[in-house]
Amino acid sequence: MAGPVGLDQGTGCYRSAIRPPLRPWQVRERRFRTTRFGRRGLDPDEVQEFLDRVADDLAAVHDALGNSVREAVRFRDALRQWQSEQARRANPAGGRY
């Protein structure tokens, strides 16, 4: 069962409040136990190949998110600098009368 979903303040992403974010290394290292009933037709190599593919995709998403966050910070800083310059031009005396 997924659990309550809310906005993660650290990442700005919506996620389950019960489980932490899944990381690529967690997918790669995941192993499935065999039961006394056997593997139930699962080929361990195919499962591992799929997990590796999911981990690669997840790593790409994490990289893209990191790039987006860095770009947003760069835009925010550039906007603040521009706003400061505009304020200085509008009031060159620096607020002195």
Rank of each mutant, 00 (worst) to 15 (best):
residue 76 R to C: 07
residue 78 A to N: 05
residue 15 R to Q: 02
residue 31 R to M: 09
residue 51 L to Y: 05
residue 21 P to H: 00
residue 90 A to W: 05
residue 91 N to T: 12
residue 66 G to C: 07
residue 91 N to L: 09
residue 65 L to Y: 13
residue 93 A to S: 13
residue 64 A to S: 06
residue 50 F to V: 06
residue 95 G to Q: 01
residue 93 A to D: 11
residue 43 D to Y: 04
residue 59 A to H: 01
residue 36 R to Q: 07
residue 75 F to Q: 15
residue 38 G to I: 02
residue 67 N to M: 13
residue 6 G to W: 05
residue 72 A to Q: 08
residue 18 I to Q: 14
residue 60 A to L: 07
residue 43 D to I: 04
residue 92 P to M: 03
residue 89 R to V: 11
residue 36 R to P: 02
residue 97 Y to W: 13
residue 52 D to H: 14
residue 33 R to V: 08
residue 20 P to T: 04
residue 68 S to F: 14
residue 18 I to R: 14
residue 41 G to L: 02
residue 83 Q to M: 11
residue 41 G to D: 04
residue 45 D to T: 08
residue 27 V to R: 01
residue 52 D to V: 11
residue 93 A to N: 12
residue 73 V to A: 15
residue 49 E to N: 13
residue 68 S to H: 15
residue 37 F to T: 05
residue 17 A to R: 08
residue 83 Q to D: 13
residue 31 R to S: 01
residue 70 R to D: 15
residue 92 P to H: 03
residue 36 R to G: 07
residue 64 A to P: 03
residue 76 R to Y: 10
residue 93 A to M: 12
residue 87 A to I: 01
residue 34 T to P: 00
residue 76 R to V: 08
residue 86 Q to Y: 06
residue 21 P to T: 02
residue 80 R to C: 09
residue 58 L to C: 06
residue 18 I to T: 15
residue 86 Q to T: 06
residue 61 V to Q: 12
residue 35 T to P: 02
residue 53 R to C: 10
residue 8 D to L: 06
residue 60 A to K: 12
residue 61 V to F: 11
residue 84 S to G: 12
residue 29 E to I: 00
residue 46 E to Q: 15
residue 86 Q to I: 05
residue 50 F to S: 10
residue 65 L to T: 12
residue 15 R to V: 04
residue 93 A to G: 01
residue 93 A to P: 04
residue 10 G to K: 09
residue 22 L to V: 07
residue 70 R to E: 15
residue 29 E to W: 02
residue 2 A to N: 10
residue 61 V to R: 09
residue 91 N to A: 10
residue 54 V to Y: 00
